[in-house]
């Protein structure tokens, strides 16, 4: 089944930032409950936007979300000290967002990850920048998977983000990532593919139709997770439907359940 990482609890979103600044627990609780009801499999928690307040904001958010969370959290920070604190505060093994091949990030995240029970989002980014080709994405994935396995992480715990880039700047940016995902799933069937999708439509009008079409193509290529807004009913309906069509929904049960609950509409 496709795994949705709910992206809404992020202090770079204005309303969340205000709620965090005001310590408005009711707002955060309600948002998390809505994401869970909409089918989020993980709740991403990012407290990075109020510069200088990340640690206390993350602590408050986890204190607030912990008691009502029915799904694991995705702890989203570049700072291992904050992740260490956050890891100690959650009761279900979390997902960690994220490691990359950028040297500073890689070298600080590896000691944190070693021996932890968690899933990890691994970005195909290195010190030279964004990947420039499908082969680039695959090579970086091989490096990430190999290095993460060397500290005992299972392939099934690794969520590769191939870094979707805007098709508006180069017409081949869609096929580049689709080809890469196919190759990765071929080589590592147990490794997951995740990431944000909306970059694909940057610089173009009517972005959501692009995002929805792209997610179905990506799912066919092997993407089995995404970092999205689960309250976007249309993309959620497309994902559930595509999951069924790709054979991941026995007897179409999940699709039918979605239709009966009103979440999937034509």
């Amino acid at each position: 089944m496709f795994q949705v990482i709910g992206e809404r609890i992020n202090t770079s979103r204005k309303k969340v930032q205000a709620a965090v600044a005001d310590r408005n627990a009711a707002y955060i609780e309600e948002d998390v409950k809505k994401q869970q009801a909409a089918g989020a499999d993980f709740i991403d928690v990012n407290a990075g936007a109020r510069i200088g307040h990340e640690k206390e904001d993350m602590k408050w958010l986890l204190d607030t979300i912990g008691p009502i969370a029915t799904v694991p959290l995705c702890l989203d920070s570049p700072d291992p000290a904050i992740l260490e604190m956050a890891y100690g505060m959650v009761d279900k093994p979390p997902m960690i967002n994220s490691i990359s091949l950028e040297k500073d990030r890689f070298d600080t995240m590896m000691p944190f990850l070693k021996g932890k029970e968690c899933k990890i989002i691994a970005l195909c980014m290195d010190d030279s920048g964004m990947p420039a080709s499908a082969d680039d994405i695959v090579a970086r994935t091989v490096e990430l998977v190999t290095r993460l396995e060397s500290i005992g992480m299972k392939q099934d715990a690794v969520y590769i983000d191939p870094l979707v880039q805007p098709i508006s700047t180069d017409s081949v940016k869609g096929t580049m990532v689709l080809d890469a995902v196919r190759q990765i799933k071929n080589q590592y069937p147990d490794v997951h593919i995740t990431g944000g999708l909306s970059n694909i439509s940057y610089g173009l009008p009517e972005r959501k139709i692009i995002n929805r079409t792209f997610v179905t193509l990506m799912m066919d290529a092997g993407m089995d997770s995404a970092i999205i807004d689960p309250l976007d009913a249309k993309i959620m309906a497309v994902i559930r439907t595509a999951d069924m069509l790709l054979g991941n929904d026995n007897f179409c049960m999940s699709y039918l359940k979605g239709v009966r609950s009103g979440m999937i509409k034509s």
Binding site: P166, S168, T169, Y202, G203, L204, P205
Partner: peptide, 10 residues
């Protein structure tokens, strides 16, 4: 003004 988009600008 969003009358032209990135591919057109390119």
């Amino acid at each position: 003004n969003e009358d032209m988009f990135i591919p057109e600008v390119l």
